Simulated scan of single mutants.
Amino acid sequence: MVYYIIAFIVFLLDQGSKYLISTKLEIGEEIPVIGNFFLITSSRNTGAAFSILEDKRWFFVVITIIVVIAIIWYMQKVLKTSQRKLLPLGLCLVLGGAIGNFLDRALTGEVVDFLQLNFGSYTFPIFNIADSCIVIGVALIILDSLFDMKQESLNNKSHEGNEEV
């Protein structure tokens, strides 16, 4: 249950921050946080990451419904059969972020983005808390998979050593 609470907190933080941005800032308005490196910039995105597949609202709605159902199913399976912690944490971060962006797309056809990072003359595409949690969640899932592969490799070597005796 704790993982669903974390997903719900991610969702609430995401939606609360988007509400503040959309009601307090005009689109394009910027607030410097750390000089020109980190700014709060009100923006809207009708596509996915980096604005790919713009204006494909119903595609994203359908895909997100499928992804959310799959994450919930898989998380239930993992929680019942494993003591792993990184995998369900990663899944709940992805779940909360996916539902946050899903709600925006379903209700308005666009996602509120506002976190802007500049690296010299390069501006990274503006993103939001849901996007951040999805990326962190995917990184945790990958990290968990790497740990799992390493553990399997160690177990296999241990079994091979026992067979030689």
Rank of each mutant, 00 (worst) to 15 (best):
Y3G: 03
Y3R: 02
I6P: 08
V10F: 11
L12T: 04
L13D: 00
L13Y: 01
D14K: 02
Q15L: 00
G16A: 10
L20N: 02
T23S: 14
V33H: 04
N36M: 03
S51N: 12
S51K: 09
L53N: 04
K56S: 14
W58C: 01
W58N: 03
W58M: 03
T64D: 07
T64A: 12
T64G: 02
A70H: 07
I71F: 07
W73R: 10
M75G: 10
M75V: 06
L87Q: 13
L93F: 15
L95E: 13
L95P: 10
G97K: 01
A98Y: 10
N101Y: 02
N101P: 00
N101C: 02
F102H: 04
D104S: 03
E110K: 11
V112T: 15
V112M: 05
L115R: 08
L115A: 12
L115V: 13
Q116R: 15
N118P: 07
G120L: 05
T123K: 14
P125Q: 04
I126V: 09
F127A: 04
F127C: 08
N128C: 03
I129R: 05
D131N: 01
D131F: 00
S132M: 15
C133M: 14
I134A: 09
I134W: 09
V135L: 07
L143D: 04
S145N: 13
S145L: 12
M149L: 14
M149W: 11
K150N: 12
Q151V: 07
Q151D: 14
S153G: 11
N156K: 15
H159T: 10
E164R: 13
